[in-house]
Every structure is written in C-alpha cells, then in structure tokens.
C-alpha cells in the first residue's frame, strides 16, 4: 500500500475493513492462517486462489457469518460485536452477495428488496418500494418486480440479490463467488453491474474466478493459497509479473486455455 503521510485524513481515518491476525479452524483443518488485510474506502479488492484456499471463508468472516478463532476484524473502526442486536446492526451496513443468490423464495422480487429497508431501517412501505424499484431498474430487472425468484434466470436473480444488498445502503459489499453458479452467457450481465458499482466508488471485496473482472475493476488483487495471503498486488502487476511461485503456478493453470 502507498503511505500518504502528508494527507491528514488518511492518518485519522482507519481502513474501512481492518482484518488483523485472523485464524479460523474447521475441526483439525485450519482454513485461515494469520490473515492481515486492510481495505480502504472506495477500494475494489479481488480475492482469488485455488479452491480450498480460504477465500470464501475469509469473505464470510467479515460479516461474521463465520466466527473467527483468533485475531480481530473491524469495520469502519468498530470491531465485530458478538451475536445479537449490535451485530445485526453492523451486518445491515455490510452488503453480501452469495454464490447461490439466496433470494427469499416465498417473496416477490420487490418484497425481497424491501424487507430489509422496512424491517431494519424502518422505512415506510411506499418509500421502500420506490427506492427498490429504482434499484431494480438500475440492475435491469424492474419489469420483473412482481415475479417470484424461481421465475427468473440465474443472472437476473443475482442482479436482484445485488439490488437487495444495495437497498440497505451498505458501506461495503462482499461478493462470495457471485458468478460461479451462473451459466456462461449470464456471467457478464452480473459482472457489468459489479464493474459499474465499483466505478461509482462502492467499496467491494470480491471472491471470484473471473480474471477479466479482476483486471478490469480491481484496485488490488489478493492471492490466497492454503489459508494464507500469498501475494497482494495491483492487477496489472499480478497478472503479468506474479512474484510468488504459487501465484505463477495458479495463473499458468487457469490461463492455459
């Protein structure tokens, strides 16, 4: 990272997401080993690595869907609280998009997007619906608002999921392999929305196998293997001159075709 010590605001403002010394075990298996990562406001960080490297687990620890065994995670200067009301409050500020969309199956698209704003933010139904429609239009599924999730294609469902997260006006968005469950022709419609979001200044942490997206939208690429961060670099540098043997090996495998 570049230190801008002259900039006063950079001194006083903590990183938006501050991960320090995080360990995570699943039984005997150590999924995360001493992870340190700071993410600044407006930054798009893409996390890549072979499967089982801990990148999804890391993503899920940031809003405490996975608990951690050691270390600290702070968001906007506040450490993650224990389960309960403060944690729910914090989660409402951290958007999350899942690999399997996870839209609420018994609710219409519009209800999916308004549930959080109404129940958590206390918005009036009308106000929430107007905002939701704006977001649905923006991700290109406005005309589907009255349908149920199963009536939409995977790509449309994932764009609704992004709108559902955005409706909470999050400080940071987590994407956990958002295109891995999609048919190839639908991947780009989701990535386009994400690229646009990043360009508008949203802070994003994106776990993905989409190297094109990483090149295009990432400020930094984090390469993980075996539960450790092996390398952090700008996308150009990472893809053209990876420093570590692990990264070179990984890139040669995925870019071979």
């Amino acid at each position: 990272m570049i230190a801008i010590s002259e900039d006063v605001s950079a001194d006083t403002r903590a990183p938006l997401v501050d991960i320090r010394g995080v360990d995570k075990h699943f039984g005997d298996f150590q999924a995360l080993k001493g992870i340190d990562l700071q993410i600044e406001r407006g930054e798009v960080v893409v996390v890549i690595g072979p499967s089982g490297s801990g990148k999804s687990t890391l993503c899920r620890t940031i809003n405490r869907l996975e608990t951690i065994d050691a270390g600290t995670i702070a968001i906007d200067g506040k450490p993650l609280p224990q389960e309960g009301r403060p944690l729910a409050q914090l989660r409402s500020d951290v958007g999350m998009v899942f690999q399997s969309f996870n839209l609420f199956a018994h609710m219409t698209i519009l209800e999916n997007v308004t549930l959080g704003p109404i129940q958590v933010r206390g918005l009036k139904k009308q106000e929430a619906e107007a905002k939701a429609m704006e977001l649905l239009e923006r991700v290109g599924v406005g005309h589907q608002a009255g349908k149920y999730p199963a009536q939409l294609s995977g790509g449309q469902q994932q764009r609704v999921a992004i709108a559902r997260s955005l409706a909470m006006r999050p400080k940071v968005m987590l994407f956990d392999e958002p295109t891995s469950a999609l048919d190839p022709e639908m991947i780009n419609e989701v990535l386009d929305v994400m690229v646009e979001l990043g360009a508008e200044g949203m802070t994003m942490i994106v776990v993905t196998h989409e190297m094109g997206f990483a090149r295009k939208a990432a400020n930094r690429v984090v390469f993980m293997a075996d539960g450790e961060i092996v390398e952090v670099a700008g996308p150009e540098e990472f893809f053209t001159h990876p420093r570590s043997e692990r990264a070179r090996d990984f890139l040669s495998k995925i870019l071979a075709h």
């Binding site: 809003n63 500020d93 958590v120 999921a161 559902r164």
Partner: peptide, 11 residues
C-alpha cells in the same frame, strides 16, 4: 442460505 441472506441484511 435463506437464513444467511436474512442475517446478512441485518435481520
């Protein structure tokens, strides 16, 4: 995933 998505929006 349904409960995770619900918790993730702050419910």
């Amino acid at each position: 995933g349904q409960a995770e998505a619900a918790r993730a929006i702050g419910l």
